[in-house]
């Protein structure tokens, strides 16, 4: 089945259990939102999916199109089609965006095959235009001295260039003003379609006005406690996380 699937996932950092029995499935072609308060384990979920070495999966599994992701190195997961837009993207001093993305795309080609430079730049400039980025941006070092908005935009640029099968967007809306949010949302919406499944992780309902999800999941204390359609986000906004927490004793498993 073509989906990004999490089953009964348990994750710990050291002795502390962060994710406790989370299940979730994002089919390709859909956009799912995971909403949750601070400390609910949202970002941990994102990092575990991408294979961050600090987190230990103590139980459960994650598959991508039925392939076991947990058995793969982070770079293998990426090349097979998983993308994570980081909440706090790292700086890569001295490495320009153009060179970085080129190296990333090159890593997906068979050995000995070289990327066509003119095609690459044509595509890069096209995607940058979509995100309202100036061309001079390509010669800046990745995230070095970037504003919060520039960092998030750069994450979406990378998403657009790498064309993954599944993308996890970890609080891409945080720290963005309304104009930047609209631009980023426009970028994400233009990528939507049957070829990609998107998992949108957020604290606030606001971004969901611009990127309208097919499904909404509410995450509390390391579990999905409610799932529903896009209207669930609005209900949650109205009633607050306490309302959602009330259901935490009986975890709702989707699919």
């Amino acid at each position: 089945m073509n989906e990004l699937r999490v089953e009964n996932l348990h994750v710990a950092i050291g002795d502390q259990q962060i994710v406790r029995g989370l299940s979730l499935a994002v089919p390709r072609g859909e956009v799912h939102a995971v909403m949750g308060p601070n400390g609910s384990g949202k970002s941990t979920l994102a990092k575990v999916m991408a294979g961050h070495p600090d987190y230990h999966v103590t139980k459960g599994k994650i598959t991508m199109d039925s392939e076991d992701l947990l058995a793969l190195e982070p770079d293998d997961r990426a090349r097979k089609g998983l993308f994570l837009a980081f909440q706090y993207p790292s700086e890569v001093p001295g490495v320009t965006i153009a060179n970085f993305l080129r190296a990333a795309l090159q890593s997906r080609l068979p050995e000995g095959e070289e990327m066509e430079a003119t095609e690459y730049y044509a595509k890069l400039y096209e995607k940058m235009e979509l995100l309202g980025m100036d061309r001079s941006f390509t010669s800046r070092a990745v995230n070095e001295g970037f504003s919060g908005g520039e960092k998030k935009r750069t994450e979406i640029l990378q998403l657009a260039m790498l064309e993954p099968k599944y993308a996890v967007l970890d609080e891409t809306d945080s720290g963005l003003d309304i104009d930047a949010l609209k631009t980023v949302a426009h970028g994400v919406n233009s990528l939507r379609g049957s070829k990609i499944g998107i998992l949108l992780i957020t604290h606030y309902q606001r971004i969901l006005n611009y990127i309208v999800p097919d499904h909404v999941h509410v995450m509390v204390q390391g579990r999905i406690v409610r799932s529903g359609g896009k209207e669930l986000a609005l209900e949650l906004e109205e009633r607050g996380y306490d309302w959602a927490r009330a259901g935490a004793d009986e975890p709702v498993l989707t699919r």
């Binding site: 991408a50 294979g51 961050h52 070495p53 190195e73 982070p74 770079d75 997961r77 990426a78 090349r79 993308f83 994570l84 980081f86 993207p89 790292s90 700086e91 890569v92 970085f100 993305l101 190296a103 990333a104 795309l105 890593s107 997906r108 990378q158 790498l162």
Partner: peptide, 11 residues
Amino acid sequence: QIFYMQQRGLT
């Protein structure tokens, strides 16, 4: 930083 770069597909 290494994790970030790996997430983009680099070994």
